[in-house]
């Protein structure tokens, strides 16, 4: 019983530890003072206004959004055929292909970012939107693969074969049979991909410039020199956006993965 109580206390303290910084940032973004204060002194939304009046923030928001959207779209277009190949075919080097495509998950992003900068330099690609894009595609693709692959089961395959037996062309079968079955995986994978791209610093930082900047990199460079309520306001926006995406994911695929005795 004492052990149980102790676990309870540690767990609740851990939850507080996880939530505290986010609450502090959101609170501090509402302060009326021109320095960061928590608890906030007075309530105002003016820091959000300051943000939207600053063209460099607006353009960073646009760059980040376009980058995350494009990277996700390309990653989905590459990951869906790759997962079909990995799930449907037995071929020499299959394990190798699979680890290659998954490896960005464990790779230090700093290394890949540096590599893309240097590689880009040789081809005149460095510090461009394209250089950012290809890097982001590489790091977000594993998320899509990982959520689509488990859906390509033998049962799913049987339906695919039935469609072909009934005279469906491969293209029609893909769009009418396979795609609807893996749509859930594509959507949740794409959401994860979008977020991972949207929050990345380590990879982007090498290929951004003051004119071509993403939100997290801009924040990173800013926070090292100044801390003020505007930065809390940007942070608060990203926290709210993240929370919305997660609630969406929860409704879509159900995040209650910790329920006891769930199906493995």
């Amino acid at each position: 019983m004492i052990a149980r109580l102790l676990i309870r206390i540690i767990a609740l303290a851990a939850m507080a530890y996880l939530v505290l910084p986010l609450v502090v940032i959101m609170g501090a973004s509402l302060t009326q003072t021109s320095y960061l204060a928590f608890p906030p002194q007075g309530l105002t939304l003016k820091w959000f206004g300051v943000l939207f009046d600053d063209p460099s923030y607006v353009s960073a928001f646009i760059t980040s959004t376009l980058l995350a959207l494009a990277a996700t779209a390309v990653a989905v277009l590459l990951a869906v055929p790759a997962s079909l190949a990995l799930a449907r075919y037995v071929f020499a080097g299959r394990a190798g292909v699979s680890s290659l495509l998954m490896s960005p998950l464990v790779l230090p992003y700093v290394v890949l970012g540096a590599a893309l900068l240097q590689f880009g330099n040789d081809f005149g690609l460095a510090r461009s939107f394209e250089a950012l894009l290809v890097g982001h595609v590489v790091i977000v693709m594993p998320f899509v693969l990982r959520s689509v692959l488990p859906l390509l089961t033998p049962e799913q395959r049987a339906l695919e074969e039935a469609s072909m037996d009934l005279g469906g062309t491969p293209v029609a079968t893909f769009f009418l049979v396979v795609l609807p079955q893996i749509r859930g995986g594509i959507v949740s994978g794409a959401l994860l991909a979008f977020i991972s791209s949207w929050i990345n610093v380590e990879l982007s930082i090498f290929n951004t410039t003051s004119a071509l900047n993403t939100i997290p990199v801009k924040m990173f460079n800013y926070v090292q020199y100044t801390i003020d309520p505007t930065i809390a306001a940007v942070s608060a926006i990203t926290i709210v956006a993240a929370a919305l995406v997660i609630i969406l994911l929860d409704l879509l695929i159900g995040l209650d993965m910790l329920s006891e005795r769930q199906q493995p």
Binding site: L22, A28, I199, V223
Partner: peptide, 14 residues
């Protein structure tokens, strides 16, 4: 789902 910056920034304040 929140960037390292935002989370580290929270601790800088705390």
């Amino acid at each position: 789902f929140t960037s390292n910056i935002v989370r580290s920034f929270g601790w800088m304040v705390l």
